[in-house]
Computed example of a mutant assay.
Amino acid sequence: MMMVSLTGCIGGEIETEDGEELILEDTDDWPTYHVLTSGDLPACDATTLGRLYYVEAETNFQACSSSGWDVIDFSTPLNQAPRISGAILADDDGHSFGEDMSAEWMYVGQLTWSAVDPEGEAVTVGVDHDRDGTADIMLPRAEGSIVDVAGGMLAVPWNGSIVGERVELSDECYLAFTRMIDLISTDASGVSASYTVQTGALSSSYIFRDMFSAEDIDSVELLFENYVSQDDLDWLDGTATDSDCGGNSGGGPQLSTYEFTAQDSGAAVSSASDDALFSITYSQGNSFDTDFLKITLSVNGNQPVQCYDSTGMGECTYELVPGSFSVGDSFVVFEDGSDLCNEGHDPCEISITIVNSDTNDVLDSITVEVE
């Protein structure tokens, strides 16, 4: 289109800087141009600048630009980005803690995904767990349900991208955490698309299980220390001035309805890997099934490990009579193939988290010193 400088309007008419009236074409009756061959195109100059001609013999369009006649190619369709979707399900949040305290703490889950290219091109798919726009783990095919080739599960660093939010429900305060992991798919032409998988930060797609109340503050600090501030914790326990939830109206943390106590086993620890560490006694609360009891330990601030009620499954174990777990019941926790606490740590400070795995409620968090 011809570029002109406009100086103003006189009587509703637009003038150029030379004072000449500029007449604009009526877009409802915009002219179309057609020639038989490109040899029939007029000169590409100020008169025809911006015009588009259909050249019949060559079945194309040509436009007059500042560089001359340009062929406009409509024959190549737009290359669309792949369509991609996915979901993550953790079969047991205990996988997160791993079996080796010295290893990096990971989030472990089963990933299901699908990537399809509209043009039928081959695609690659990767997991971008830190959401920086670059795939960190490449998946073996365009769609499926996997997982890490060696272990059958997808393992990504725990401190990936977690979103924490304050939530008020029925006058109760909670901190809720959601994990975000991006999937990136790229077709053979280099066009990419991404999809964000949202799941529970800890336990899977049950997002509301990742909501923590005032009695869970120790767990929040342990699990999500990179994603909460002191202001968040003060709001949660009711000590902050902006925390006005009914459940916290007393101006302090709510009392847990469950209480446990822990005591040194009395047997000196050694360099062996089967020492008796401590006993746990249930001192307050409602009865629940022993199948739903889950014990997690952190020794001297190290990464947590999960204890199991049978040997050979983790780094610590305990024995319980199957059935109902009631006030007054107790059990002893032992090392199970790992020397968690020995003469080199005098004493060992062990942080214990007790969870009802049926509801994923943290029942109590206690500490014991073991010598």
Rank of each mutant, 00 (worst) to 15 (best):
M1I: 04
M1H: 10
M3F: 02
I14P: 00
D18Y: 13
D18R: 13
G19D: 04
L22Y: 15
I23V: 15
L24T: 08
T32V: 13
L36F: 10
T48P: 06
T48R: 12
R51E: 12
Y54I: 07
Y54A: 14
E56S: 14
F61R: 05
W69N: 06
D70F: 09
D73T: 02
N79Q: 03
R83K: 03
I84T: 02
L89W: 10
H95F: 14
D100I: 10
D100P: 05
E104S: 11
Y107T: 05
V108G: 10
V116H: 09
V116D: 08
E119P: 07
E119Y: 04
D128N: 05
D130T: 07
R131W: 06
R131M: 15
D132H: 04
G133C: 04
M138A: 15
P140F: 08
P140V: 10
E143W: 11
E143H: 12
D148F: 06
G151Q: 09
W158H: 02
G160S: 05
G160I: 02
S161R: 12
V163G: 04
V163H: 08
E172I: 12
E172W: 12
C173L: 07
T178A: 03
I181P: 02
L183Y: 01
A188I: 00
Y195Q: 03
T199G: 06
G200W: 04
S203I: 09
R209I: 02
S213F: 05
S213A: 14
A214N: 02
D218T: 13
D218Y: 12
S219T: 15
L223A: 04
F224C: 00
V228R: 01
Q230H: 03
Q230W: 05
W235V: 03
G238F: 04
A240T: 07
A240V: 08
G247F: 15
N248Q: 14
S249R: 13
Q254C: 05
Q263H: 06
Q263W: 02
A267Y: 08
A272I: 05
A272K: 10
A276P: 10
L277I: 06
Y282S: 06
S283E: 14
G285W: 02
S287Y: 06
S287A: 15
D289Y: 09
D291E: 11
D291A: 13
L293P: 12
I295V: 13
I295F: 03
T296R: 13
L297D: 01
N302P: 00
P304A: 00
Q306R: 13
Y308F: 13
E315Y: 02
L320F: 04
V321S: 15
P322S: 12
G328F: 09
S330R: 09
E335M: 14
D336R: 04
D339G: 07
C341A: 11
T353K: 15
I354C: 13
V355W: 15
D358P: 05
N360Q: 13
D361F: 15
V362N: 14
L363W: 05
D364R: 05
I366R: 09
E371K: 08
